[in-house]
């Protein structure tokens, strides 16, 4: 009896708790959530529905040392489109379809990815695409096996490559920008590279869903 009463009380508290009557937190006025595929499994992306939720403590830091964590410009290079969250979510949904020609890439090092990443992204640490920390065979392998470039005797054919949507920790992060510059140098078409400048920083600032990444 006592437990039943407690359960009933608990249910009442739940219904009338601030969470229970919280105002909805949509992505846009018409979209509350979307479903994407992460590591082969469906994941729902939505914003935290707790109106009192605050940004994850790692991302509350304001003054990481610069250099190296300096503020990036709004545009990286001619032809490289900078995107925001809504465009990112569209790309994540598109990347989740079978045979998609879109790849959303988390360029951060595995220690960061392990703490949480954007659902629907894959991990390619920036050091693997950077010439002085990687090697030509690794880079060539990524270009051909992951991005769809065709190796034509010393020349790369980029006519069928995937659209890459790259991000790292945000406007103070140099990892995806560095990789994007390297890709441009190889001749990767600028209109097939998108940059989510806000990165994990803005994703967290908006309370959007993250998943624990796998270390690779």
């Amino acid at each position: 009896m006592k437990t039943t009463l407690l359960t009933a009380l608990f249910a009442l508290v739940l219904i009338y708790s601030p969470n229970g009557i919280a105002k909805p937190v949509g992505i846009t006025t018409s979209t509350l959530s979307v479903e994407v595929i992460h590591n082969g499994k469906p994941v729902v992306i939505q914003r935290s529905q707790d109106n009192k939720n605050t940004i994850a403590s790692d991302y509350a830091l304001t003054s990481r040392a610069c250099p190296p964590f300096c503020i990036r410009p709004i545009k990286l290079a001619p032809g490289i489109e900078t995107i925001g969250e809504l465009e990112m979510i569209d790309y994540l949904v598109a990347a989740s379809k079978p045979g998609s020609d879109i790849l959303v890439i988390d360029s951060r090092t595995p220690d960061w990815v392990a703490k949480g990443t954007i659902p629907g992204s894959i991990s390619i640490p920036w050091t693997l695409l950077k010439e002085d920390t990687s090697d030509p065979i690794t880079i060539a392998g990524i270009l051909s096996d992951r991005f769809g470039a065709i190796d034509e005797d010393e020349l790369w054919n980029f006519s069928k490559v995937k659209t890459l949507v790259m991000f790292c920790n945000g406007m103070w992060c140099g990892q995806s920008p560095r990789n994007i510059m390297t890709l441009l140098k190889y001749g990767y078409p600028a209109d097939k590279i998108k940059w989510y400048r806000g990165g994990m920083q803005n994703w967290h600032a908006l309370g959007l869903t993250t998943v624990k990444g796998q270390e690779k």
Binding site: G26, I27, T29, R47, L86, E87
Partner: peptide, 16 residues
């Protein structure tokens, strides 16, 4: 400015 989940609507995410 630490708040992540202001009600939307009206405080929705704007396009880039």
């Amino acid at each position: 400015y630490t708040l992540s989940s202001r009600p939307c609507p009206p405080r929705c995410i704007h396009p880039f």
